[in-house]
Nucleic acid binder design. Structure first.
Lengths: 237, 237
DNA sequence: CGGACGTTTCGACGACGATCGAAGCATATC
DNA sequence: GATATGCTTCGATCGTCGTCGAAACGTCCG
């Protein structure tokens, strides 16, 4: 009866490895041209074009034409969320730990998700903020910022009151890809990452989504938040 | 980089219509035997068995053997969440409204989901119950029944106090497929549908899951709940 | 035990769809 | 205009997977 066209249909769109690779490449919200997505998926331009058309129809992507390029991006945050939730499902068997590339390791350690901090560092920081009572989980996947929290952010030069909440609130809980936990997102999350970068605690890579923790940043995070992390290079993987 | 090997794999498990139907049948957390799932998906027992084995491997289902039955259920709340988020993705385009068969139209208008009311009518009624303050959304996808609500149900001859809550509560929020919203489920939902049928407001079809709204029912629902709906036969699509 | 029932395994068939080569369009560059 | 580049459409091939019939396995019941 096909009462659920969207459901299985959407899943089948994600099910193809090539399409999944493209979606993953787009998950941080960037817009990429078709050719680059083809490269990311390891397929020819023709095949990629066909896939992109399907994802477009399926409501997973949006596209903007600019000159002779066509830039594709996720249709919205709800798509990113759905993808992230999908990733929480794992095969039951103890999946053999694959040896990760150094890059993958760094990416897992700290990266930007849209414009906020994600990865082990992002989750650790968010946990610490909660433990200190600076932010508290609220309904609808949001965080409330406490008075103490506003003061603490202020000490970093981040004026919480100056931030303009979007329709979805000031601070949101964003499910973390690799860590299976939440990290800080929303306008506060964006400002937080920017503040930490400006202060020289973090460094964003230009080419990828990797975020590096500087020695200075490591020290400050430990002192101010009690967050103690190993740099990516020392992680087992 | 294959940071998420299981990603496309999990999606492909959901992508099959038969498997999707089984997952949907399980989305409220109940455990169902293989045969019933086969029936729900409209396939033979052999085929269903193969699908169930895959879903099991994929970490989407758990199973408990009891006598000669095998009861399958979702592997956890995270699976249900992922499924629901998937359902939020819709084709962008007001996809050319397919001419639905009269049956599909009726099914979309009102049907029973297990033993409670679903479809446009189910969602409308549930929304009205919330607006009137008779039920309020609670944690863990449950509804709480207010004192006013208990009184209102009592006026219908439905004694809320006489209902025995299951382990999952007295009233639950069940995701509605076609309407992309929640409707009332759980013991209260079951009793509600039964009461409305007994009162002659609704009529359940014996062969299918279609539920018909009688003229009397239409009038009563409008007066008592402020619910105003068009009968299925007058709907456009 | 023997028969009924629920479930799984095996094998074969058939259809859907992912893929790429070749060609067609559109835009940019000279 | 002519040519290169980025992307899409068309057509054909091929592998994969969903499907069911037949049969085996296990449990319940008389």
């Amino acid at each position: 009866m096909s009462l659920l066209p969207s459901f299985a249909g959407v899943a089948s769109l994600i099910a193809d490895p090539a399409r999944a690779a493209m979606l993953i490449a787009l998950i941080d919200g960037r817009a990429l041209p078709a050719g680059e997505l083809a490269y990311a998926a390891g397929i020819t331009a023709q095949t990629a074009s066909s896939h992109l058309a399907k994802l477009l129809d399926g409501g997973l992507l949006r596209v903007e034409t600019e000159g002779r390029h066509r830039y594709y991006r996720l249709a919205g945050a709800h798509v990113a969320q759905a993808l992230e939730h999908l990733a929480t499902i794992r095969p039951t068997e103890p999946v053999r730990r694959k040896a990760r590339t150094p890059q993958a390791r760094e990416l897992r350690f700290a990266r930007c998700c849209y414009d906020h901090l994600a990865g082990q560092l992002g989750v650790a920081a968010t946990c610490a903020l909660q433990e200190k009572g600076f932010i508290v989980p609220a309904e609808d996947k949001k965080f409330d910022v406490t008075a103490a929290g506003a003061a603490w952010f202020g000490g970093l030069g981040l004026d919480v009151k100056a931030l303009r909440p979007t329709r979805r609130g000031l601070a949101r809980q964003c499910l973390d890809w690799t860590e299976r936990s939440h990290h800080l997102a929303g306008p506060l999350g964006v400002a937080f990452l920017k503040t930490l970068c400006d202060a020289g605690w973090l460094r964003r890579s230009r080419a990828s989504r990797i975020v590096q923790l500087t020695p200075r940043g490591r020290l400050e995070l430990k002192e101010r938040l009690g967050v103690e992390v190993q740099p990516a290079s020392e992680l087992a993987g």
